[in-house]
Amino acid sequence: MKHVNILIADDEAEIADLVGLHLEKEGFHIFKVNDGEEALKIVQSQPIDLAVLDIMMPRLDGHEVTRMIRKQNYLFPIIFLSAKTSDFDRITGLVIGADDYMTKPFNPMELVARVKSQLRRTMLYNQSASKENILEFRGLTIDPDQHKVTKYDTVLSLTPKEFDILLLLANHPNKVFSAEHIFQTVWGDAYYDNQNTVMVHIRTLRKKLGEDKNEFIKTVWGVGYAFHG
């Protein structure tokens, strides 16, 4: 059976050791580093399946590392583990490409559960994606197998969550999805009492699609969003 490789990047050695200890007990293979540059080196040299990143790290912080990981089209799940607790910090992390966000102090067993959940969702997504056909809409091509979106042959750099939102909507043209449904489907988590996360992702997705008049993603005011096929 393939080893599951998990990267832990945290400048607090005690926390990195604690996280590593609990994940190793579950049979995962662990890489531990203490700064952002070392984290990137591991990503580029090892087949990483999931990363647990602190935000406040020397040389490169967690946000910068995540942006570079996504820019280089690595699609493995990223979980932020941070002392920053505000909604703004959480939303920022999710928007730039993280899949989950936990605040310190944390329960190690909850982190283990979230790691397993992200790995399980990735595995199920990859299995289902292989059964999908390529979707094409007026110059826009969505390839679930390669997790790639092109517009008139130009590859668009989408985060995994942006891709998942687009695929969800495009698989059901003209069907209206509420922000709550989108969040629960894409993030697989309980819905927050606001629409900020989904709204910001939709906004950045539209920008990357190069939409001037929301030609693909329509807002149905008071209801949600729909893909215009």
Results as ranks from 00 to 15, higher is better:
130 S>R: 08
87 D>R: 15
93 G>M: 11
149 V>D: 08
82 S>R: 08
94 L>V: 07
150 T>P: 05
118 Q>G: 00
135 L>F: 03
122 T>Q: 13
160 P>E: 10
97 G>Y: 10
117 S>G: 03
121 R>L: 09
108 P>Q: 01
105 P>T: 01
160 P>L: 07
132 E>M: 02
121 R>W: 14
98 A>V: 09
132 E>P: 02
87 D>C: 10
124 L>Y: 12
148 K>E: 06
88 F>M: 11
165 I>R: 05
142 I>R: 07
130 S>C: 05
115 V>F: 09
87 D>V: 14
152 Y>H: 11
128 S>D: 07
115 V>S: 00
148 K>I: 04
95 V>L: 14
137 F>S: 12
126 N>R: 11
134 I>Q: 01
157 S>A: 09
129 A>H: 00
137 F>T: 09
136 E>W: 05
109 M>Q: 10
164 D>A: 12
152 Y>K: 10
153 D>L: 10
112 V>Q: 02
155 V>R: 01
122 T>C: 05
116 K>G: 14
125 Y>K: 13
119 L>Q: 02
160 P>C: 12
158 L>F: 06
132 E>Q: 06
154 T>H: 10
111 L>I: 00
112 V>P: 10
105 P>C: 03
134 I>T: 04
138 R>N: 02
145 D>H: 15
154 T>S: 12
162 E>P: 07
105 P>F: 08
162 E>L: 11
133 N>F: 05
113 A>R: 09
103 T>A: 03
107 N>R: 11
98 A>D: 13
145 D>I: 08
154 T>V: 15
93 G>I: 12
107 N>W: 04
123 M>H: 00
108 P>S: 07
88 F>Y: 11
137 F>W: 06
96 I>F: 00
151 K>I: 01
168 L>N: 02
154 T>Y: 12
141 T>L: 13
149 V>I: 07
110 E>R: 02
131 K>P: 10
99 D>E: 05
88 F>H: 13
109 M>G: 00
143 D>N: 09
162 E>S: 09
114 R>M: 03
113 A>G: 08
87 D>F: 12
166 L>P: 03
103 T>E: 02
120 R>P: 07
151 K>Y: 07
152 Y>E: 05
135 L>N: 04
126 N>C: 04
96 I>C: 12
166 L>Y: 01
143 D>T: 06
131 K>D: 01
87 D>I: 14
112 V>W: 11
168 L>H: 00
125 Y>M: 07
129 A>D: 00
132 E>W: 04
86 S>W: 08
141 T>S: 13
